[in-house]
Design a protein around this nucleic acid. Structure first.
Length: 120
DNA sequence: TCAGTGACCAGAC
DNA sequence: CGTCTGGCCACTG
């Protein structure tokens, strides 16, 4: 499906050492209200081969950590890239101020062009 | 057709 | 900071 292909393309643009939120990805896909579908796509591997570990919810919490092979896998992958992961009562959390991906208008325009070129 | 579900979110307080 | 609420929408049985 179109939306999921876009999800994959956007996820692959998340820079190493940064994390993006579900809403942010949905936004870049042109469907700002589909944050849940992004989570659905990643959870069911509908988005294909993408760095899903770089995606967290709007609070910076690794809400999908349980879906990885081992409970700590997502945390380890992120720390390996220099991202700080804190343990809180709510779960593993990231400081989005520090490690969040700040997309620029350039990023958005580039993506829009990629969608057009690939017809997705 | 329809209700239930989910790796969600913004707003109100 | 924190909790609660209503909204969101593709997918599924």
């Amino acid at each position: 499906m179109n939306f999921y292909k876009r999800t994959a393309l956007v996820c692959r643009q998340i820079p190493k050492g940064k994390v993006a939120t579900y809403g942010q990805i949905a936004m870049l896909c042109g469907k700002p209200k589909n944050a849940r579908q992004v989570g659905y796509a990643l959870g069911h591997n509908l988005a294909g081969d993408v760095p899903a570990y770089r995606v967290v919810n709007a609070s910076g919490i690794l809400s999908g950590a349980a879906a990885f092979e081992t409970p700590d896998l997502q945390k380890q992958m992120l720390e390996q890239e220099g991202i700080r992961v804190n343990r809180t009562e709510r779960g593993l959390q990231i400081d989005l101020k520090r490690d969040g991906w700040k997309n620029t208008m350039e990023d958005a325009l580039w993506l829009r062009n990629e969608f057009e070129v690939r017809g997705i």
